[in-house]
Design a protein around this nucleic acid. Structure first.
Lengths: 146, 146
DNA sequence: CTAAGTGCAAAGTATTTGCAATTGG
DNA sequence: CCAATTGCAAATACTTTGCACTTAG
């Protein structure tokens, strides 16, 4: 009989598709999934060290790349020159980004699946992924200065 | 009376909003506008050196940033870890990217303006920019291997 | 003329890699 | 066991910066 932790482990095992289930991988995935917002490699590294002080930044990068390739996390390229990551969400969503205060809102819209379908048909592509990123000015920034 | 080159110059002058119109800036903008595809800083640098061998990579980066800030070029973050640039197009378009062969198709769809409008209204944002990037497998790659 | 722009070299970030030591299956 | 994974340090890739010289306006 399988307890809760065992079940979690088995699920992750499956996600890893034959790769080894190490403490570092388990920790990092947990941290990404628990993260309130999009996290970057460096923040993840700092956070992970609180639990496993000997973890290295290389491992963080290697693991992020692995998770990305396995489809466990999504990598985002916001305005910055480094990447942000988030656990792959149960359903596809997009980002709305305030250029003034930096706030990022996640939203969904069925327009995106329609877009995928329309464009896939038009160009005979099999569309598998989307990255939709709207920028603008949020209500409080509109109200405040300018 | 104004000849063709003079008119071009005046137009660029206006775009630069008071910044100086240098040979490097004129060259770089011309190259970006003439580029068949999205170009990155390094390719632009190599290309520019054919015309102005003493141009420096710093100038390329500085100029790209200036053009981006002025809205003359758009900066894209594709899968790679560096940026690609293109002259700002007359109308907003999106990208469809083959994960297998790397080909990038530009397309338009009115779904995107509807998305801007819908989301702007929903969150009371003033939406100013969009980056829409679909990934998938193109017809020839679907036909070929897998 | 003179402030803005440039080239060069050096520095700064973000990310990857080689390798010996460790460890999951 | 032993190949996959890790930590560490060093390397690489991309981008920015300080400064003396040049140049557009």
């Amino acid at each position: 009989m399988v307890n809760k932790e065992g079940a979690e482990r088995a699920l992750l095992q499956q996600h890893l598709r034959g790769r080894r289930l190490t403490g570092q991988r388990r920790l990092l995935l947990g941290l990404i999934q628990g993260a309130q917002a999009h996290i970057d490699a460096d923040d993840l590294y700092r956070l992970a060290r609180e639990y496993e002080p000997r973890i290295s930044l290389s491992t963080v990068y290697r693991t992020l790349r692995l998770f990305k390739d396995l489809g466990l996390v999504d990598e985002h390229h916001f305005q910055e020159d480094h990447h942000h990551y988030e656990a792959r969400a149960p359903h596809e969503h997009m980002h709305l980004h305030c250029l003034n205060c930096g706030r990022i809102i996640e939203f969904e819209s069925d327009l995106i699946s329609r877009l995928k379908e329309e464009i896939g048909r038009r160009y005979n592509f099999k569309v598998v992924g989307t990255e939709v990123h709207l920028t603008g000015v949020c209500p409080s920034c509109r109200a405040g200065g300018q």
